[in-house]
Simulated scan of single mutants.
Amino acid sequence: MISYMLTVGIAMVLITGLFTAGSAIVEDQQDQTARTQLSIVGQQVAGSVEVADQLVRSTAARPSQLVVTRSLPERIAGSGYRIEVSGGDTVILRLMGDDLAVSTHIDAETTVTGSAQGGTIEIVHQTSSGNLVIQNG
């Protein structure tokens, strides 16, 4: 009887340990997946801004109105996210409800401002300021 109780107790401790370790591994994997997805979307935003910058600076075009539209996922890892511009040359994607943030450098000569939620965004050239503004589309 005592050996049976010891066997059941040891089995319960082992199962509890496996569940605890397994949940930590799954949580780490989810964070890594979210970080990777934020990085990919950040690269897409930066690339779209760089295209808009090249169009604005093009001597042939000199657009009076320029809008570059980009469709992005509305959610990453099951959560919404926010796109922000910092310092005019860095785009930061922040996962809502989490402290996870990923930044991507923007290689543009035109000053970039604005912010948007995930989903369809627009990069608008404001002729009055000469800036490119990221906003929801």
Rank of each mutant, 00 (worst) to 15 (best):
T69Q: 12
G87E: 09
V51K: 11
S64F: 04
S48N: 11
Y4E: 15
L55E: 12
S3W: 11
L66D: 05
G137P: 10
R82Y: 00
T16F: 05
T16E: 01
V67F: 00
V41W: 01
I121E: 03
H105Q: 07
L18V: 11
I15G: 02
L132Y: 08
V8Q: 03
E122D: 15
E122C: 15
S48A: 14
P63C: 02
T16C: 05
V68R: 06
V56S: 03
V124L: 12
L14F: 06
A11T: 01
G9Y: 02
A52M: 06
H105S: 08
V91F: 00
G130N: 09
D99Y: 06
S48I: 06
V51D: 02
G130V: 08
D98R: 13
Q30Y: 06
T7H: 00
G119I: 10
T104G: 03
T113V: 14
G130S: 07
D53I: 05
R35W: 07
E84M: 12
I92G: 00
Q44G: 09
V67W: 01
Q126N: 15
Y81V: 08
V8P: 05
T69K: 13
I2Q: 04
S103G: 09
G97Y: 01
G88V: 14
S103N: 11
A60Y: 09
D31C: 04
M1P: 15
L6Y: 06
T36I: 14
R70W: 00
V102L: 02
T104K: 10
